[in-house]
């Protein structure tokens, strides 16, 4: 059931920020609504006390994908469907497109937003690992100031971010990666469609003459929140891009995740499988020409 709440749909960001500053504790931004409305239905603690929903979808500028020479910006109301259909993203950020295609169903992708996926910060958020390897940044606006922080810093712990009550995420900024990067996104679910991630991985690899010049790795669903694995990335630097390195890396991945999460109910399955699929993903990306 939907709580007794009011609904406003301001036409400008300024008006939105004003409403937020006036209703700090009780107001919540509504974008796609695909996390909030199910949350209402199960009477989730996270959404129970909302008294005002501020729908930001009437603010035109937030609905745009903007391409610049060195970067692309995803407005706060850009849906996963927009990402799936965007030639810009297909060209520069294929991992994000691939992850977007695995989010929920068509109906969900038509509403759910990439920014919402980050703000909700579920451990299994599908778009987070690709955004992390692309070094995405988050632009946050309040009445008084604008700040830009890295996505990794933005994500604090499950279902919690650096966003304050009087702030709005206006966009995600992603620098265009070096075209020498190859990469892939991997998702394991229990079902072949509309599945929650059990494991997700994003990988970008740049080689120079068979040597790993740069490797970027991010995981989802196996760590408490989506995370870059810098230790592994450092380990890989300047190593030979071959099976033996990839095995080492995968073992290290297993150890690292075990260290982060400790033993959990799912570890017996997830840890060995994570190492295997990570290894295979590395092999697959390495073979790409």
């Amino acid at each position: 059931m939907i709580p007794k709440l009011n609904y406003v749909a301001p036409l400008s960001l300024k008006r939105t920020l004003k409403i937020l500053s006036e209703n700090k504790k009780k107001a919540k931004i509504l974008a796609g609504g695909t996390d909030i409305l199910p949350g209402f239905h199960i009477n989730s603690k996270r959404f129970r006390d909302i008294e005002l929903l501020v729908d930001i979808k009437k603010i035109g500028e937030l609905k745009l994908i903007k391409e610049f020479k060195d970067r692309v910006e995803i407005g706060a109301c850009v849906t996963f469907s927009q990402i799936c259909e965007s030639d810009t993203f297909k060209k520069f950020f294929p991992l994000l497109v691939k992850s977007a295609e695995t989010v929920g169903s068509v109906q969900i992708r038509n509403r759910a937003t990439v920014v919402g996926n980050c703000v909700n910060n579920a451990p299994c958020a599908d778009s987070v690992p690709p955004l992390l390897v692309y070094d995405a940044k988050i632009e946050i606006q309040s009445l008084k100031r604008k700040r830009v922080i890295s996505l990794q810093k933005f994500l604090i712990k499950p279902y919690s971010t650096a966003l304050k009550k009087n702030e709005v995420v206006t966009k995600i900024i992603i620098p265009k990666p070096d075209p020498d990067f190859k990469g892939d996104f991997y998702k394991l679910g229990r079902r072949r469609a509309v599945a929650i991630s059990r494991i997700s991985l994003a990988l970008l690899l740049k080689k120079k003459a068979g040597i790993i010049d740069e490797l970027r790795i991010a995981s989802g669903a196996v760590t408490p929140i989506g995370a870059r694995l810098h230790e592994l990335e450092k380990f890989a630097k300047d190593k030979k891009a071959d099976s033996s390195t990839f095995k080492e890396l995968s073992i290290l991945m297993g150890k690292k995740v075990l260290q982060i999460t400790g033993l959990r109910w799912s570890s017996e399955y997830k840890l060995p499988v994570l190492q295997q699929v990570f290894y295979q993903l590395l092999e697959k990306v390495n073979e790409e020409e």
Binding site: S243, S244, K247, S250, I251, G254, K255, L258, L263, S267, E268, L271, P272, Q275, Q276, Y279, Q280, E283, K284
Partner: peptide
Amino acid sequence: IPTIEFKDEIINKNLILSDREFVEP
């Protein structure tokens, strides 16, 4: 299937694969 067997308690090291246990694509 590379079945992993556990005793009553999970021993951490069993969760980490050895070189030989990786399956090629």
